[in-house]
Design a protein around this nucleic acid. Structure first.
Lengths: 117, 117
DNA sequence: CTAGACGTGTACTATGTCGTACACAGTACG
DNA sequence: CGTACTGTGTACGACATAGTACACGTCTAG
């Protein structure tokens, strides 16, 4: 269901089609890990990397960091921080929103952003 | 600032004042850990326990699990799950709400719960 | 005065996380 | 050719997590 590694490989190879600097080795070098490690990550022989490495990878591959973290089964630590500061409040909000369809949540986001809170 | 262990000890001793079955040993037994371990947790000689253990502890001490998890620097895994399912959406919402005061968020929660979403 | 409950100190361990180091065989190109 | 880059296999390691096991001195109630 997840397919973190699969996604990374697909995305990288797509970019590689247009730019030869997206080889596994060069991407590994840019994000600061060993090629063999990235290779194993892409083939899912090891679990997804740490949050920091995933964010660097997201940057390198020009994808949404939160989405990539989610594929790795993780949640950005700054979001966790925000929740930890007001646990009951956010816990209830999020649990309520579990059953709410995407577009309604999106409307809510807009309301908060544009609204006079 | 956190004081997870301190809080647990204070809470347990408060209950112990009224009910002698809230000794460290008996609580430890109820939540399924060794007394020596709970002792170390309360004195913060070790980091807070796992999520599961914290939830059992919250139940035993009759405190809010989310609040206790927050003191341990954690976020309930079911909340994380909810976020992971719609990362961009929730990420944006939560980041927006960082700067929003408690009462406004609370109003939002009510709106979602009572509203015709 | 002693049996049981109390909290605590020390030692140990299994499992997970997050990678590095290095050698290897295949391929492309100039 | 050869050299330089490609992806990959194997081995290994440091550190964190989440506890258990057991002995010890103390206190307290019958």
């Amino acid at each position: 269901m997840g397919g973190f590694g699969q996604f990374v490989r697909a995305r990288r190879e797509r970019l590689l089609g247009e730019d030869r600097s997206y080889s596994l080795r060069q991407v590994a070098r840019r994000i600061g890990v060993e090629p063999s490690y990235l290779s194993k990550v892409e083939r899912e022989q090891v679990p997804p990397p740490s949050e920091e490495t995933i964010v660097r990878l997201a940057t390198a591959l020009e994808v949404d960091p939160d989405a990539l973290l989610a594929m790795a089964g993780k949640v950005s630590s700054d979001l966790q921080e925000a929740i930890r500061r007001r646990p009951q409040l956010f816990a209830e909000l999020i649990r309520e929103l579990k059953g709410v369809p995407d577009r309604a949540v999106l409307r809510l986001v807009r309301e908060v952003r544009d609204g006079d809170w």
